[in-house]
């Protein structure tokens, strides 16, 4: 998913937010939602995928700055519909790691450390 998103928007891993946004705008202009709804949806999903990590990190950093507690962090993560459970020591590590980052492009490193792999992006099953 991550790889196909990179391919679709013709960007490289580690490209910054602005580069991703420029690529997104370029493709949306080429494929306006009015005439290319399916293609647009694919572009949108790819952009969503590629910016998800950044958005999560930003939320965490913002919360840390505002001195919110860990519960808020977890609720933010679940608000993005990502099944992400953080346990005791893991949470401490997470907080330390995120706090040590001065945000800006390093989000990928933080993410790797958090082991927020694609598999964990997937939402947990619910009974039907």
């Amino acid at each position: 998913m991550f790889r196909s998103a990179l391919k679709l928007l013709k960007v490289a891993p580690g490209d910054d937010k602005e580069t991703l946004h420029r690529a997104y705008v370029r493709f949306v202009r080429r494929y306006p939602p009015e005439y290319f709804p399916e293609k647009f949806t694919k572009i949108q999903d790819a952009y969503h995928e590629l910016t998800l990590a950044d958005r999560i990190i930003e939320k965490i950093l913002k919360d840390l700055k505002n001195d919110r507690n860990a519960l808020t962090l977890v609720s933010y993560l679940s608000a993005d519909h990502i099944d992400f459970t953080v346990e005791g020591s893991q949470l401490d590590n997470l907080l330390q790691l995120v706090a040590s980052q001065q945000h800006s492009g390093k989000s990928k490193i933080v993410l790797d450390k958090l082991n927020l792999s694609n598999a964990q992006y997937r939402k947990g099953p619910n009974n039907f």
């Binding site: 939602p33 949806t41 999903d45 993005d80 519909h81 939402k123 099953p125 039907f128």
Partner: peptide
Amino acid sequence: IPRNTPIPATRSHLFYSG
């Protein structure tokens, strides 16, 4: 499909039978 999702949008979710 969560709020503030750009439209048109397509999203899926996996469920299990009870």
